[in-house]
């Protein structure tokens, strides 16, 4: 071992199982057709460049950053919700200090964004953006209103199921995840190519939050649970 003390053997991160992630090209989602590489990806060994990444443990989260219903003088319209869950790695270990950013449409299905032309009303009391950090146990929580479904131009009569966008910074640049959380029982799942792009049905179901009576607050807001799993590392360093 002596001569290895200067060797920086790094524990490699697990690759994701086949079918558990969407492909880059999924033709029913038309915008992928001109935005997906046609050459095979080059597989990288994990060096310090891949296994490090921005860590946000010391970030200050503003008082209303994790409560999207308190960012204006009045309250937004819509069903009040509490979204909570844990960020774990694929070994089941909590990911503390993960920065989570969320953004979403308002209750009518309209985003506060200049490119959103959906003729549904904006809500002067709702911006639709927030952020929070996971605690020592990987737990997070934020308060919002349930977003509406909205139409888009992918195909005739295309509607996105209600969803909240999530951006998560874990421990490494390679564990970076941007995804969408859906709500249980949405009738639009079967018609949505973004949701359907994930080949494995079980993997797809993991994007659907669960209604949770435990975190539902009486006379106040519905609770939904959404756990997020990021890639984790092999138990032993890879000796290359």
């Amino acid at each position: 071992m002596g001569h290895l003390t200067n060797e920086r053997s790094l524990a490699q991160y697990h690759r994701t199982p086949p079918g558990s992630q969407p492909p880059s090209l999924y033709e029913p989602y038309r915008a992928t057709i001109r935005r997906s590489p046609t050459q095979p990806l080059t597989v990288l060994p994990h060096t310090l460049s891949e296994i490090t990444g921005p860590v946000y443990g010391h970030e200050k989260i503003g008082e209303t950053d994790n409560d999207l219903t308190r960012q204006h003088s009045g309250e937004p319209l819509g069903e009040r919700i509490i979204v909570s869950g844990r960020v774990l790695d694929d070994n089941g270990r909590p990911v503390p200090h993960a920065l989570i950013e969320v953004w979403q449409a308002n209750a009518t299905g309209r985003y506060r964004h200049k490119n959103d032309q959906h003729p549904a009303p904006l809500d002067p009391n709702f911006t639709g953006a927030g952020r929070t950090l996971t605690d020592e146990n990987g737990s997070y929580r934020f308060v919002s209103i349930k977003p509406g479904a909205y139409p888009w131009f992918n195909h005739y009569n295309a509607w996105r199921p209600a969803h909240i966008h999530f951006s998560i910074f874990g421990r490494a640049f390679l564990t970076r995840l941007v995804t969408q959380m859906y709500f249980p029982g949405d009738p639009l799942f079967a018609f949505d190519p973004v949701f359907q792009s994930i080949p494995d049905d079980k993997a797809r179901q993991r994007l659907i939050s669960k209604f949770d009576l435990e975190t539902t607050q009486p006379q106040w807001a519905l609770g939904f649970r959404f756990d997020i799993i990021l890639r984790g590392r092999d138990a032993t360093p890879f000796e290359d």
Partner: peptide
């Protein structure tokens, strides 16, 4: 590896709202 990582989904056309309007 006991758990399967959460699938990715597109950042969509309105990501500015959550990621770059105030946090670029």
């Amino acid at each position: 590896m006991d758990l399967v990582p959460t699938p990715s989904q597109t950042a969509g056309p309105y990501f500015h709202l959550g990621m770059t309007d105030t946090r670029s």
